[in-house]
Amino acid sequence: MTDQAYNFAYLDEATKRMIRRALLKGLAIPGYQVPFASREMPMPYGWGTGGVQVTAACLTPEDTLKVIDQGADDTTNAVSIRKFFERTADVATTEATAEATVIQTRHRIPEVPLTEGQILVYQVPIPEPLRFLEPRESETRKMHALSEYGLMHVKLYEDIARHGAIATSYAYPVQVEGHYVMDPSPIPKFDNPKLGDNAAIQLFGAGREQRIYALPPYTRVVSLDFEDHPFEPTKADHSCDLCGAGDTYLDEVITDDQGSRMFVCSDTNYCVTRQAEAEAGAAQ
């Protein structure tokens, strides 16, 4: 049931138009952070207000929504956001990645390749990839304007000098269509290769920082690296202990106080589906 006290998908129409215009400019300038007048949402900043506003501006009554946090549909914040849209937009929801038309995510890209009918909405905490190198917005904006990314390369190179490897494992910076350097949100770098050449539309919302950016489908996205230190997507060197998958991103679960560990798929829907398929196969 839609909550009649609020407009469809919560936001008023003027706010949605403002966000929609920002989204379109984001698509027209891939990887560029479009400022938008983020609104105060009924959930705290830092808990997905940017993603929620983008989703609210995109949802149609016919959509099927999936919400994940850390790859899982049942994490508390994912549950909370999914309930919010069930209540305010009365949309169908699903846990099955393939059935969803809009997927809001925090920190993961689903394992199943996305398709042309899908929109992936990322919750972004710090949209500025240069923020920790230069805290000033006035300065980073100039760097983007001039495509001056030397500072980022210096940082990555210092990592190599110090650790022998690039010491960034999530929110690993990418360059979009050879121009803007972009923060992919805190996804593990394992997911970075899925950013580029993706069939789905990818939208990024940072509520507190008031920025929206986007990747159209089939956009060229390159993880920053060096010839002698090429980018490497990494995961735990195990297979999933539940479904046996050897090519998925894994959570490490501590199972007792003796140091025992299990490794399980972070994408719970993918894992559950594989387990069900295996059971069905065994039953036949």
Binding site: G46, N77, H107, Y170, A171, P188, R208
Partner: peptide, 17 residues
């Protein structure tokens, strides 16, 4: 406070990496 408190949310994917 929103951003400060959001570090209570699960971060096990990033921490795992």
């Amino acid at each position: 406070t929103g951003f400060l408190e959001h570090i209570k949310l699960p971060h096990y994917v990033d921490f795992q990496s």
